[in-house]
């Protein structure tokens, strides 16, 4: 439905309707901003990247074939490419940012594990907790990019496996495998930090 609506807007935009362009923006900016935010874990970076994404969309909209594929997949692919570029640019910074790196960064500040609840892992109990969300966001940011983008597209963007496979240009089986490994790695990361708290 959304893609059908966007398809009409894209046609109008290509025909010179400036209002249609704003319509496309309003329809997709939230999803793209969230995608960028989940990947970078930085509101500033997410805002800059979202802006870059739509500037690129604006410049290359003529190359999008309305009849060929879903606009959401095309837009997500474009966003993902920009995110990968962004990741490569900041790779040097991330090399030192290992999974346990955050615990060593600042001994004075409360660690990730310090902020985890003491009792067993029951995410439902902390659904509304902002602190929990922050912890999960940090853990997500420490996953490898391959696993992170897979779980973000599936669990946070609600894309189906076929769309993710098209976006990432890998087979569906690989997508599922990455999603599984990403989820497991996230759970391990959070539970490991919690065990460290228990041993102290």
């Amino acid at each position: 439905m959304e893609d059908h609506q966007t398809g009409a807007l894209v046609r109008k935009c290509l025909a010179g309707d400036a209002v249609a362009w704003e319509g496309i923006l309003r329809l997709h900016q939230r999803r793209i901003y969230n995608l960028c935010y989940r990947f970078t874990n930085s509101p500033d970076d997410a805002q800059d990247l979202t802006q870059d994404v739509f500037i690129r969309v604006y410049r290359t909209l003529a190359s999008y074939d309305v009849d060929k594929g879903a606009f959401t997949t095309w837009l997500t692919t474009l966003t993902r490419n920009l995110l990968v570029d962004h990741f490569r640019r900041s790779k040097q910074d991330r090399v030192t940012d290992s999974i346990d790196g955050g615990l060593r960064e600042d001994d004075e500040a409360p660690s990730l594990s310090d902020r985890l609840p003491d009792h067993g892992p029951s995410p439902d109990d902390h659904l509304a907790s902002q602190e929990t969300q922050k912890i999960v966001r940090q853990a997500l940011a420490r996953l490898s990019p391959d696993l992170r983008e897979a779980v973000i597209l599936r669990d946070l963007q609600d894309m189906d496996y076929r769309e993710i496979a098209l976006t990432l240009k890998v087979p569906e089986g690989t997508v599922k495998s990455r999603i599984n490994r990403g989820r497991m790695e996230l759970a391990r990361l959070l539970s490991r930090n919690k065990r460290q708290v228990g041993s102290k």
């Binding site: 939230r30 935010y37 995410p123 659904l127 999960v136 759970a187």
Partner: peptide, 18 residues
């Protein structure tokens, strides 16, 4: 673990863009 990780991810809510 996979189930747990998925549940953790479900706790993340959409953020409002600026």
């Amino acid at each position: 673990e996979a189930r747990e990780g998925r549940l953790w991810l479900e706790t993340l809510e959409d953020v409002e863009p600026p």
